[in-house]
């Protein structure tokens, strides 16, 4: 790798600003050239990939392996060295149930409560998120006035920190929050939104959709805009009703994007934590207790902490996510192959 000749960038203010960069480049040239002579171009590739691989290895792979080891230990000590090896005991404990469908019949009833809660949440949220994102994208695709403004408005919540999102909606939905205040002023009976089981669930779903739908709508919007306009004109000439245009033309051509969005939402939904934890804390009771919160509480927040059990639960959750990710990779590859044809 040789550095481009500094002569090319020398002109006016550009030269002054680029001078230190050019100097550094010139200084780096000899050692890097020497390295290339030794390692060849493949060697250079490895040299530049090494830092990132190291970071990935240390901060992703290593903790993953350590986590698996943790899941096979017991005790309350935090350090691996102080823990006792118990084999699959933690997993046995998690799976110790008379009936998997009834959390109350399980030893770790909170784990299974969290599992079924998360399953219910995932199903509902995925359906609604995809539908809302699709509708939003369809609306944003039209020739509205101030279209860019509306797109920014829908995307804005995506930029917010999840804690902020949870807090805002808690202030709106709590017993003495904005919504009840509005209802009271209108003469309607206020509802304790975050304390009624079903409303709390709806709030969890609704808030997380509000916070992220802009992102998925944007993906679908890009897909919609990739559909050639003359297809719609041809359909118009063909006398096609709007509903049929949507079902027979828009939707099939949007299918690859929809699939991507579906899998992304799915993977995200399984890991739901931040907004819900701030919004309801897992309540009322354990109505909105989801897997990630369970793992956090067992591993860190309760007395006494049980890192082994938490690790086991997180490994199980990770297994589900790996399956979903492989599914997503498969789809991505299929889209790629389709594109090449």
């Amino acid at each position: 790798m040789t550095v481009s000749s500094p002569r090319r960038v020398l002109s006016g203010t550009g030269a002054i600003l680029m001078a230190p960069v050019a100097l550094v480049a010139r200084l780096l040239d000899p050692p890097l050239s020497a390295l290339q002579r030794v390692g060849g171009t493949n060697g250079m590739a490895a040299f530049f990939l090494l830092p990132n691989m190291a970071v990935f290895g240390i901060f992703v792979l290593l903790p993953l392996v350590i986590n698996i080891i943790y899941s096979m230990t017991g005790g309350t000590a935090l350090f691996l060295a102080d823990r006792t090896f118990v084999g699959a005991a933690q997993y046995q404990r998690l799976f110790d149930c008379r009936s998997y469908v009834d959390p109350k019949s399980c030893t770790e009833d909170l784990f299974w409560t969290a599992v079924w809660n998360t399953a219910g949440f995932v199903v509902v949220q995925v359906v609604f998120m995809v539908v809302v994102a699709l509708v939003t994208a369809l609306v944003l695709n039209r020739d509205l006035r101030a279209r860019s403004f509306w797109r920014a408005v829908f995307f804005f919540p995506v930029l917010l920190s999840p804690v902020v999102v949870g807090l805002i909606w808690r202030w709106i939905l709590q017993r003495q929050g904005l919504l009840n205040f509005g209802l009271y002023e209108l003469g309607l009976t206020p509802v304790n939104w975050l304390v009624e089981r079903n409303w709390a669930f709806a709030a969890a779903v609704g808030v997380s959709i509000w916070a992220h739908v802009g992102f998925y709508a944007l993906i679908l919007l890009a897909g919609l805009q990739a559909i050639p306009k003359d297809l719609y004109e041809a359909a118009e000439m063909d006398g096609t009703r709007p509903a049929r245009v949507f079902w027979r033309i828009t939707l099939p051509l949007l299918a690859p994007n929809l699939l991507v969005v579906l899998v992304l939402v799915l993977i995200r939904a399984v890991q739901i934590f931040d907004e819900v934890y701030v919004l309801t804390g897992g309540g009322p009771g354990t109505a909105t207790l989801y897997l990630t919160q369970y793992i956090y509480e067992v591993g860190f927040a309760s007395f006494l902490r049980n890192p082994g059990l938490a690790s086991a639960a997180s490994i199980l959750m990770g297994a589900v996510l790996i399956v979903l990710t492989l599914f997503q990779l498969g789809i991505a590859r299929r889209n790629e192959m389709r594109g090449k044809r």
């Binding site: 050639p228 003359d230 297809l231 004109e233 041809a234 000439m237 027979r248 033309i249 099939p252 051509l253």
Partner: peptide, 12 residues
């Protein structure tokens, strides 16, 4: 009936 410059055939 119209024949478009880009044919506008439904690709799917």
């Amino acid at each position: 009936a119209m024949v478009f410059q880009s044919y506008a055939l439904y690709p799917h």
